[in-house]
């Protein structure tokens, strides 16, 4: 098979897709970060529900984590993509617009990743909360801290510290899940590779390049999480 060499294809020359692939890597990072952040908010809420005294809230929290961890991520993405478009269509009709209104792919990605990773992060937060000693919570209450202050000064700093390893695992899941968003047409790393593979007829070269770029992202982020963990635990005596 003759044609441009592998390095020409993925490089930055006239025939190269390097710039496009780097842009798409940025998009992957953006959608993963957005989804992870949304998931942190959802996860904190669901963890709060699972730890609450109200039986109804606990049941909701348990149901949420069981369901979202038990069904494929791809289904959730389809739900948000097609379901979101249908809902937008209904809203559009109210304002006199006809026809299909596509759900913005980036928003779909952030929402779908957020909802799924929220379930995983809820479990991480709940586990981290349970490592806080009861005595500290009681002491905070005894010196007169109200819920908000207790949360800010006592609970959140410690939960974050013990949640770092679990959050690191969830981040890796989110990164890999972001590849699934390519089915909605969002031009992230995998979709860009698909486009390049289609136009050059060199699928192997581009998918392997995508794999290497994903590998770089996961390797760098696991290094960063290890550093963060070491830093957060520097004041903790280990058994």
């Amino acid at each position: 098979m003759q044609g441009p060499s592998f390095l020409d294809l993925v490089g930055f020359g006239p025939e190269g897709w390097g710039a496009a692939l780097l842009m798409a890597t940025g998009m992957t990072l953006a959608v993963a970060t957005g989804g992870f952040a949304a998931g942190s908010v959802i996860g904190a809420g669901v963890a709060g529900a699972k730890l609450s005294r109200s039986r109804a809230l606990r049941a909701f929290g348990d149901g949420y984590t069981t369901v979202l961890r038990g069904i494929p991520d791809l289904l959730v993405i389809y739900l948000f993509y097609f379901g979101g478009s249908a809902a937008l269509g209904v809203v559009g009709q109210l304002f006199g617009a006809d026809g299909f209104i596509g759900m913005p792919a980036f928003l779909t990605g952030v929402l779908a990743i957020g909802v799924v990773s929220g379930a995983y992060q809820a479990e991480v937060f709940r586990g981290a909360f349970n490592t806080i000693s009861r005595g500290e919570l009681e002491a905070a209450r005894a010196v007169g801290m109200r819920t908000g202050l207790r949360l800010r000064r006592i609970i959140v700093p410690q939960v974050l510290r013990y949640a770092i390893p679990g959050l690191g695992n969830t981040w890796q899941l989110v990164l890999k899940e972001s590849a699934l968003i390519s089915v909605t047409g969002l031009v992230e790393l995998l979709r860009q590779s698909q486009i390049a593979a289609g136009s050059t007829r060199r699928p192997f070269d581009f998918y392997i390049t995508a794999a290497v770029l994903y590998l770089v992202i996961t390797a760098v982020s696991s290094y960063l999480f290890r550093q963060a963990e070491a830093r957060a635990l520097r004041g903790v005596r280990r058994a």
Partner: peptide
Amino acid sequence: GTPLLVQMFVIYYG
């Protein structure tokens, strides 16, 4: 370290 979907694409299309 790589998404399963990418692995599938490498094998099926690549």
